[in-house]
């Protein structure tokens, strides 16, 4: 089972729910946690992994073997991202614009382009609380592209039966969220009952309908807002799987790095129920 935890709006409690879901399920199955919010990853603050592996996340960028280059300019012409420019007989490479697609390499008539790894972040792996296998991607500061790191992070292991993979998504509704959602069985949407939460949730529902991924909602900070969220959920026929009322003491505890199930152990059962509902929705869909 592969579950992405997403939201649209930032700060709604994705990581709070994702980490406690992982802890609640760890006694039932092998759980893997992927922190796909590679720009601002926070899952490790709660699940406290000991990282045992760290590898660079790289984009393969072109390197021109200048002595053999005829300066024909074909590589510059085929690059959709303008990561190459030609000045006289020299080809300039702009690593931060390069997507690592390989188009220049394949199109070079002289075969003089080799690809070299350009690190843009790191991929880490380690064991966390309750034997959760923890994977984290980290975008290097000043690097623009999170998506290749998410892609590489998710490829670290193949999904296996009887394993629950939980993907903590970045906020927003652009390409990095889509990369996190690719291939998952279910999207658990954590939102809050405010106009901001609702507006951004609608963006997420648009993506999920395009990608044909079933979803359910956790309403966090229940009680701080109005009814428009629930009306929209009814309209879109999206089930509410859990409510977490607003509670100042909880907010303080979460801020200190404690998890929801540590502060209120009764959420363990609630989250297991939630997982049960997810398996029913996913099972119903595949039938």
């Amino acid at each position: 089972m592969q579950i992405a935890v997403a939201s649209g709006k930032g700060g709604t409690g994705k990581t709070t729910i994702a980490t406690s879901l992982a802890l609640s399920l760890a006694s039932l199955a092998k759980v893997r946690y992927f922190d796909c919010d590679v720009e601002a990853p926070n899952g490790h603050l709660f699940l406290k992994p000991e990282f045992s592996e760290s590898t660079p996340a790289v984009i393969r960028i072109p390197q021109i073997q200048t002595e053999k280059c005829t300066a024909c300019g074909r590589c510059v012409e085929v690059c959709e991202f303008h990561a190459l420019a030609q000045v006289g007989k020299n080809i300039l490479v702009f690593p931060q614009l390069c997507h690592g697609c390989g188009s220049c390499t394949w199109n070079c008539p002289e075969n003089v382009i080799v690809e070299v790894p350009n690190p843009i972040g790191t991929l880490e792996r380690g064991m966390a609380l309750e034997n959760i296998e923890f994977f984290r991607g980290l975008l290097t500061i000043s690097e623009p592209m999170p998506t290749p790191i998410i892609r590489q992070l998710k490829k670290r292991v193949h999904p296996q039966p009887n394993t629950i993979n939980i993907y903590d998504a970045p906020p927003g509704a652009s390409c990095s969220v889509v990369e996190t959602l690719r291939g998952v069985d279910f999207a658990l949407l954590v939102t809050e009952p405010t106009p901001f939460g609702l507006h951004d949730l609608k963006q997420m529902l648009g993506i999920l309908s395009d990608m044909n991924i079933p979803s359910g909602v956790v309403i966090n900070r229940d009680g701080i807002g109005d009814d428009s969220l629930e009306e929209t959920l009814r309209e879109f026929n999206i089930p509410v799987l859990l409510r977490v009322p607003f509670d100042r003491a909880l907010a303080e505890n979460l801020a200190s790095g404690r998890t929801l199930v540590d502060v209120y152990p009764e959420y363990r059962n609630a989250l297991r129920d939630l997982y049960q509902q997810i398996t029913e929705i996913v099972g119903g869909k595949t039938k």
């Binding site: 510059v76 959709e80 991202f81 303008h82 990561a83 190459l84 420019a85 030609q86 000045v87 702009f94 614009l97």
Partner: peptide, 18 residues
């Protein structure tokens, strides 16, 4: 030519000027 590019507008404009 850079004005309509989705990325690398500066490089596209610079290439034209070069």
């Amino acid at each position: 030519p850079g004005a309509s590019q989705s990325g690398g507008a500066g490089v596209a404009a610079a290439q034209f000027i070069v």
